[in-house]
Design a protein around this nucleic acid. Structure first.
Lengths: 107, 107
DNA sequence: TTTATGTATCGCAATATTACGATAATAATA
DNA sequence: TATTATTATCGTAATATTGCGATACATAAA
């Protein structure tokens, strides 16, 4: 118990849920929004901007990376994170497909 | 610890994250997809279709209802669940706004 | 009224997530 | 080389989520 029974669902269902899940935390939303306000890459002024501990931010960044929503390039002693634009668009398109395919005229 | 620090984020960020979070489980994706394949409302053949226990399905339905993605109408001794189409579209539009506003040209 | 059916809720166990301090690892700088 | 700055990872505590059996509750049917 306690574990999601992933084997009961299709690969696509699990993948969709994974994207949604990663986006399902306000800190990760805030990180994405902050990154997007910067014209150039930012590193981790995120810690100051968001106000969570460095370890926590790093963990959230790791999750965003796990679905390739962001990419990080090492730049000297810091790491430059930015949105993976191609991936961003393909995920948006995936989610729209899901929304468009899932609608009913009942009730 | 362990609790999301919602007070650090904007209402909009929390709300967006909440939608994503509810969609972030394959069983709930499967429920939405199954409901949408039915022309008329279904009740809970969902239990048979999805293969989770009745208590578990009921819990997932409750979460979907918590963000108004579905609505349930009592119909005799069963409950007819269906997608809340207006809400569905407004959420899709919200998410697209988020995606469109969050994109950068860095890296 | 009794029985059967469908659903919600309670209580619990297992596991996952969130958050953070401490520490390791890496690279620039003095 | 020693120091400093930046980030990742480890370990841990608190809390949340997932899943299910048991049970309560409501309505239809016998």
């Amino acid at each position: 118990m306690g574990t999601t029974k992933a084997q009961m669902f299709t690969e696509r269902q699990n993948e969709l849920a994974k994207f949604f899940k990663v986006l399902g935390h306000p800190a990760r939303i805030a990180i994405l929004q902050y990154i997007s306000t910067q014209n150039s890459c930012i590193c981790s002024t995120l810690v100051e901007e968001i106000g969570l501990a460095q370890a926590t931010i790093s963990q959230h960044l790791k999750e965003l990376k796990s679905v390739d929503l962001i990419k990080g390039e090492i730049e000297g002693k810091s790491v430059c994170y930015c949105i993976n634009v191609e991936r961003w668009q393909s995920i948006q398109s995936e989610l729209n497909t899901f929304f468009n395919n899932t609608a009913s005229n009942c009730c």
